[in-house]
């Protein structure tokens, strides 16, 4: 399959707000990209027209109840059947920030035994508490399972921004260790927060410094940082300090490029 034939759907509902820049990231890489309201997908029954579904950032439904919870329930209620088919066919699903929260609330991540009835994790209030907009470093710790990062060298450090108040990944206390072991055994950990030199750090109190995980198949990927805000060099906070810009792009592009390549190769 050629990149220009790949159809990307950025799915939105009231309160979604990073859809334009997320669409832009896919568009400049040559994919066909559409932003669709959930209501439109329901009306046209068109979810299966797409090769990849993206849940972008924002505050869907005001993040009332818990961040992402209402969108997850709405999606399940309105498009549950199509979603199941989409996932069963191993078509990729990406959740960024609020999108990651939605995937967790839906039970798709971690989803050790496939989609779970109840969420198996939570993305909860940051420690220290409050919204934080800041550039951070991430290390790619995935060994090759994740379709979104398998061409990015292992242990490569990426520079991306975070902007959230509920990004602390949490598992139930009594199962915390086993859960971590399962994540490691199944190669489901993708990104962990680190410093510029690669030493681990943690901007929001998240468990095991985890910033992003994928499902067992590597087809569903959620992360708190915003790769769509790190596409061009001039989006970086330190771009003015560099003498020369060897590439017009920035680290976030790697993730979008990676998934488009994975889809192109597979089909």
């Amino acid at each position: 399959m050629k990149t220009q034939d790949i159809k990307v759907c950025i799915m939105r509902a009231g309160g979604t707000n990073c859809d334009f820049e997320t669409a832009r990231a896919f568009r400049i890489l040559g994919a066909q990209t559409e932003i669709k309201h959930v209501n439109e997908l329901v009306k046209n029954n068109s979810l299966m027209d797409y090769n990849i579904i993206v849940l972008s950032g924002g505050s869907s439904f005001g993040d009332y109840v818990r961040a992402g919870a209402i969108f997850a329930r709405t999606l399940n209620a309105k498009l549950g059947k199509q979603m199941k088919q989409f996932i069963d066919e191993n078509r990729p699903l990406l959740g960024i920030c609020n999108g990651f929260q939605i995937l967790v609330e839906y039970g798709l991540l971690p989803g050790f035994e496939g989609p779970s009835q109840q969420p198996e994790a939570a993305l909860t209030t940051n420690i220290p508490q409050g919204f934080k907009c800041q550039w951070i470093y991430l290390k790619n710790e995935n060994k090759g399972k994740c379709l979104f990062t398998n061409q990015i060298p292992q242990n490569k450090i990426l520079h991306l921004p975070i902007a959230h108040s509920e990004g602390r990944l949490l598992f139930s206390k009594e199962k915390e260790k086993q859960t971590l072991q399962k994540l490691i055994d199944n190669d489901m950990i993708v990104f962990r927060y680190c410093n510029e030199d690669g030493t681990t750090t943690d901007p929001n109190g998240t468990y095991h410094n985890i910033a992003g995980i994928c499902n067992k198949e590597g087809t569903i990927f959620g992360l708190m940082p915003h790769p769509e805000r790190a596409i061009y060099f001039w989006q970086e906070p330190t771009w003015t300090q560099k003498q020369q810009h060897t590439s017009p792009y920035s680290d976030g592009k790697l993730i979008f490029e990676n998934i488009l390549n994975s889809i192109a190769k597979k089909q």
Binding site: E21, F131, K132, C133, H226, R229, Q235
Partner: peptide
């Protein structure tokens, strides 16, 4: 200032 999102829309050149 960091409790305000100054990056959303991905068009902020000087922050």
């Amino acid at each position: 200032v960091r409790t305000y999102d100054h990056e959303v829309k991905g068009n902020t050149v000087l922050k």
